[in-house]
Design a protein around this nucleic acid. Structure first.
Lengths: 166, 166
DNA sequence: TTAATAAAGGATAAAATTATCCTTTATTAA
DNA sequence: TTAATAAAGGATAATTTTATCCTTTATTAA
């Protein structure tokens, strides 16, 4: 078979991550604002998009939502931008996820059944329960503020590092 | 505000499940074929789509993939259909998931970083790790055949029950 | 050996998600 | 009080995922 062509496989599905892109970017944005933004040092959409390596207009939409939901504070006009009220309660990851995608990772059946419960379980309901609980704990207990320290200390990262140009 | 309109919120994102729809349906299809299909009792696409409550042509595509990947056997022509070779090795959930969506739930960063590892972790890398490990165990250890018994016994279900008409 | 059956495969359509653009509104500072 | 700045909001475009349709190929049974 000398002439084997490189065919495009269009049948299968490639992506299914834990959160939506919107949600991923939201978590990263909130984290950035937590460690870098203050009322006297607000962050613009541009700064945020760049720092978390997220498309600018998409980032704008996400920030709009986060601001509307009251998770981050915003100010219009010159010197405006986003920040987090230091007097406000710590923000749980769950709050961010709920603001963006209704936490459906936790709330819907893994096999897509409309009804799926302990009483009428899908075939993997019980197996999935343990890890949903685990994720649930992480989302409900961990706050953005909890995660901020490692980030400040350079132990965790909000964007992938670029290879250094020679 | 008497005339408050019901606006459509188009900003936010609604869905993000553990697996893609294709993958959900694939798992359910394989389970059905396991408990109901034999070489002398093959199941047609129609029967499968109905039993797992999945759109017929979409189901056809999924079965095509599963068949191409060798997870289920198929036969064309009259009395054709899908079945599972009883002499074949048990099928892990992982195999099904990989056939459909590359198991990206396990393999990609929860916050969408291109590079994310123990050495260069995203802010929730460590928190998510336990969860991923747990899911990984379920997917790699549990086989379709393991799950079949409860299904046969009527303890678990492949589709939501309809409300009974009066 | 032919008609009927059923999966395989290719192309396309619909829906959902992600991303972009542009106008409006609010705020600041000159 | 006006120009400049920056977020808010609305509409739309691009991409991905889901779903559908139709033709081809293989198999069976008459």
């Amino acid at each position: 078979m000398q002439n084997s062509e490189c065919r495009i496989l269009y049948t299968c599905v490639i992506q299914n991550d834990m959160f939506t892109k919107a949600c991923e970017n939201a978590i990263r944005a909130v984290l950035l604002i937590t460690i870098k933004g203050r009322e006297d040092k607000k962050l613009s959409i541009q700064q945020i998009a760049k720092a978390i390596d997220s498309p600018l207009p998409f980032t704008a939409k996400i920030l709009q939502t986060l601001s509307r939901e009251g998770l981050v504070a915003s100010a219009k006009g010159p010197n405006g931008g986003f920040y987090i009220d230091t007097k406000a309660k710590p923000i749980t990851l769950s709050q961010v996820v709920r603001a963006m995608d209704e936490e459906s990772v936790l709330t819907t059946c893994a096999l897509g059944l409309k009804q799926c419960s302990d009483k009428q379980p899908c075939p993997i309901h019980h197996q999935v329960k343990a890890y949903k609980n685990q994720l649930s704990k992480v989302l409900h207990k961990k706050t953005v503020q909890d995660l901020a320290k490692d980030l400040t200390d350079g132990k965790t990262f909000l964007r992938s590092h670029r290879k250094v140009k020679k």
